[in-house]
């Protein structure tokens, strides 16, 4: 177990592409950190620099109290779970789990003990003598996690481990990972582009955009007080409405020029509401209904109970205190 500290970390790929810049994060011992952001924002690059699979171009990475910039991946005391599992196809599950330990000359009895323990935790006991080919996606994912657990590392690194699974399995595995991490209290960094996964797993979220940190905070902080229009649009589903303040009448003077953010669930139908929306499309989600429309030339989405009345134009009101205000040029939050 260890804390991980990233200090002004940056990555410039050969050829001059800057993938990550100026990233500083202090990760406490036992914390579950989720790196989230759209495709190509540099999440994997950042994680791989922590793992040692990618050279660190700028800044320092510390695991425990040790600077690991020039240390081989195997000696960094970390374990990684990959998106496509990366199990050794010619080895049985047992050999897959044991391989890393064998390379570190762990005594045989100790290897057996750890493999048995991991198998019990992940319920992969019955498959120990099968080849990965003979396992389902979910089972392979468990084996991949088993391979990380047996190492008893200072930190787990996950790179989109669930994105090859179907939606339902993703939800169960998500919970299992969370429980597992609770139980083992191993510091973890988890990369995903799925904001829901990020929200449910994280102790703290790190939202990345184009290689830079937009915001760090607990899921609720990030949800309630997004630091920028980027975060506001990325975290939360359906996404927050971002409209010009001109489209919203009766705003306080301070909010006159800027971008207003309103979550779809903070809007509701009211006969005398300040906003009038022309309905363009309706999505039924079962418990909820999403109504898409436009007001004053701005697109707007409203989440409402599925029994609420519908018409071609709706008058809407927003929950008091639910407006987010962002600077018109920088997009940063104004409080």
């Amino acid at each position: 177990m260890a804390s991980i500290t990233l200090d002004k970390v940056g990555k410039i790929y050969a050829g001059g592409t800057r993938a990550v810049g100026d990233v500083s994060i202090d990760i406490a011992d036992g914390e579950f950190i989720v790196l989230v952001g759209p495709s190509g924002c540099g999440k994997s690059t950042l994680l791989r620099m922590v793992a040692g699979l990618e050279a660190i171009s700028e800044g320092t990475v510390r695991i425990g109290n040790r600077v690991v910039n020039d240390i081989e991946p195997a000696d960094r005391d970390i374990a990684m779970v990959f998106q496509n599992y990366a199990l050794y196809p010619h080895m049985s599950v047992r050999q897959n789990l044991a391989y890393g330990l064998k390379n570190r000359r762990t005594p045989r009895a100790e290897i057996e003990r750890r493999v048995a323990q991991a198998a019990a935790i992940l319920q992969i006991g019955p498959f120990l003598d099968r080849k990965p080919r003979a396992l389902s996606g979910g089972q392979r994912q468990r084996v991949a996690m088993g391979r990380a657990i047996v190492r008893e590392p200072a930190a787990f690194l996950f790179d989109e481990p669930l994105s090859n699974l179907d939606a339902k399995l993703r939800v169960t595995m998500r919970l299992e990972i969370k429980e597992l991490q609770r139980r083992l209290r191993t510091t973890s960094i988890y990369v995903t582009h799925d904001q829901l996964e990020a929200m449910t797993l994280a102790d703290r979220l790190v939202v990345l955009n184009a290689g830079r940190i937009e915001q760090i905070g607990t899921p609720l902080e990030v949800y309630r007080k997004p630091a920028s229009t980027f975060v506001a649009g990325f975290i939360g589903s359906p996404a927050m409405n971002l409209i010009s303040s001109r489209a919203v009448p009766h705003l306080p003077a301070a909010a006159q020029a800027g971008t207003i953010g309103i979550r779809p669930e903070d809007l509701s139908v009211a006969p005398d509401g300040p906003l009038e929306m022309e309905v363009l499309a309706v999505e039924e989600l079962g418990a909820q209904r999403l109504v898409h429309g436009q007001t004053g030339g701005e697109r707007l989405t409203v989440a409402m109970p599925s029994d609420a009345p519908l018409s071609d134009t709706l008058r809407l009101t927003y929950r008091p205190g639910s407006l987010h205000l962002f600077h018109p040029e920088t997009g940063r939050r104004i409080d």
Partner: peptide
């Protein structure tokens, strides 16, 4: 896949070990 190579690196397999334990059998 590259990820297999990387997994082996993290598992502490040096180049020759990787060659013997992973590449040859595959």
């Amino acid at each position: 896949p590259d990820e297999l190579t990387e997994a082996a690196r993290i598992d502490g397999a040096g180049p020759m070990k990787f060659f013997r334990d992973i590449l040859l059998p595959l």
